[in-house]
């Protein structure tokens, strides 16, 4: 669950910026002939609703209804006692708490006379909510509006870029707090989590690849044992709903650590040219440091806070995204696995 700082600072997220986002969505809705737009949210799939309203439910679930005019409505199954709190931390939208949010959304759609409803990620939309909305009005048409949303969401505005910069700073401080001399992986990763949350992170997932000589998989604290000779920390965190990741690799051996530091520095300074091939630019910047094993570029997509937008295995010819992205990179440096991740092109 979200248990870090959840607060709204008007200087950080001015209402006008949120209204501009809503307007962009309405332009696309009109273009696609949608009478209304509905998006689902929970802690795993909160990115779209957060982009529209500035809020992610810390627990439970909710739906946002965007009509042709007026404020979006956030309907949530959270207790009515937290409705005022939600209103105080949600920059845009009205709040209704109800045990059946889709029933409420359906009744509002019925009242408005809307017939063609765009649903974000219709195939993945929870079936129970879809059925409840469909049952509310005869002849209602639910259409997939993932592309509609994507067009509205395409650019990153100044508000998002500023929040991303804060998230990036927090992720850097968090990774730097890893207790590198710890024997147990749990002791290694506990300080980064505290540092992220002390800095105001809304959420933090701190994972460890405890022995890079055996595996590059990042595990949760419940599965961890002793650290190996080389190991890595991966911190994924949200600040005011904006997510980033950072990964740092460490080695007990000083010479290996020195080669890891070089790779980390190269990643920190990596500024690929927009619209050029990512693969080519990664090869140019990192090829001399080691063998390029894998890379994955991530950005927010639909309801996912971070999702792959390009990777070596499936889209090796992909171009550099126009907006900042998280680059996850794996190299083999003199026989050792090195993994890094950073926000790129901010």
């Amino acid at each position: 669950m979200r248990r870090g700082l959840m607060a709204w600072d008007r200087d950080e997220i001015p209402p006008g910026a949120m209204e501009a986002r809503l307007e962009r969505l309405r332009v696309e809705m009109k273009h696609d002939g949608l009478d209304a737009f509905v998006a689902y949210t929970n802690i795993a799939r909160g990115a779209a609703v957060c982009w529209m309203t500035g809020f992610t439910p810390y627990w439970n679930e909710g739906l946002v209804l965007v009509g042709a005019t007026g404020n979006p409505l956030f309907a949530t199954a959270l207790s009515k006692r937290v409705a005022d709190w939600i209103s105080s931390v949600m920059p845009l939208g009205d709040v209704e708490t109800t045990p059946k949010p889709s029933g409420l959304i359906g009744s509002l759609i019925a009242k408005s006379g809307a017939k063609r409803i765009g649903i974000l990620e219709l195939d993945d939309f929870p079936a129970g909510h879809a059925q409840a909305i469909l049952q509310s009005v005869e002849g209602l048409q639910l259409v997939d509006a993932t592309a509609t949303y994507a067009l509205a969401r395409d650019a990153m505005d100044d508000v998002e870029l500023r929040l991303l910069a804060t998230a990036n700073r927090l992720a850097g401080a968090s990774c730097a707090a890893a207790k590198v001399d710890a024997r147990e992986a749990r002791d290694f990763i506990a300080p980064p989590e505290s540092v992220a949350r002390l800095g105001g992170a809304e959420e933090c997932f701190a994972l460890v690849a405890q022995d890079l000589s055996k595996s590059g998989a990042f595990l949760r604290t419940e599965s961890l044992g002793a650290l190996g000779e080389t190991f890595a920390a991966r911190v994924s965190l949200a600040y005011k709903g904006v997510w980033t990741r950072q990964t740092r690799s460490f080695a007990r051996d000083r010479a290996v650590q020195a080669s890891f530091d070089k790779a980390a520095l190269a990643l920190e300074h990596f500024r690929p040219e927009a619209a050029a091939s990512i693969s080519d630019q990664i090869a140019r910047s990192f090829g001399s440091l080691g063998r390029i094993v894998n890379w994955v570029a991530e950005q927010p997509r639909g309801s996912c806070p971070l999702a792959p937008v390009a990777d070596l295995a499936n889209t090796p010819q992909a171009k550099v995204p126009a907006t900042p992205f998280v680059l996850n990179l794996e190299l083999e440096i003199a026989g050792a696995r090195w993994i890094g991740a950073r926000l790129t092109n901010l």
């Binding site: 669950m1 248990r3 870090g4 810390y58 989590e193 992220a196 949350r197 604290t221």
Partner: peptide, 23 residues
């Protein structure tokens, strides 16, 4: 208030707790 949560979470991660519901 969030500084209290930060201390808690550091303790829990160090003790094998991967998740915590807390308000």
């Amino acid at each position: 208030d969030y500084e209290l949560v930060a201390e808690m979470e550091g303790f829990f991660r160090a003790n094998g707790v991967a998740e915590n519901f807390m308000i």
